[in-house]
Amino acid sequence: MSAAEELYEVSLVVNGVPRSATVPARRLLSDFLRHDLELTGTHVGCEHGVCGACTVLVDGRPIRSCLQFAVTVDGAEVTTVEGCTRPDGELGHVQQAFRECHGLQCGFCTPGFVTTITAYLEENPAPTADQAREAIAGNLCRCTGYQNIVASVLRAAELRAERA
């Protein structure tokens, strides 16, 4: 272990911007985003793939960034919570809905919900309340009891339709 680890240059397009850094193969995508690219909106709540706080979109699909090595997704397009705003920097539809519905408290799990819901609504633009609850079922929140997050999903769908 005293020998230095082999390093890899990893290049991603993050929120539309090409970014790269040189890291060991074992650098998790979550740490790569947070500590190498200093995009700290993506949070780490468990590092074993259960809580969902680290969820980012890789080529449009939500994945757990704590269960990927950055080097594995070299070349991919990544969207983080920082990229879920509108082009003018104002709150995106999911973010705006969370604000209106009090869908967050401490805000630590929130980035994973925002990315997950953003992708979900692309596939399911008009969910029912039950579907909305199901859509967020892979993310843990310890503050809100989820009720206002479910409401946020429904509100985000409305805002998305209005803005379309």
Binding site: A25, H48, F69
Partner: peptide
């Protein structure tokens, strides 16, 4: 909770 080092291959 960070993985130990490993030699990486991507065929």
């Amino acid at each position: 909770m960070k993985p130990a080092g490993f030699a990486y291959h991507r065929p």
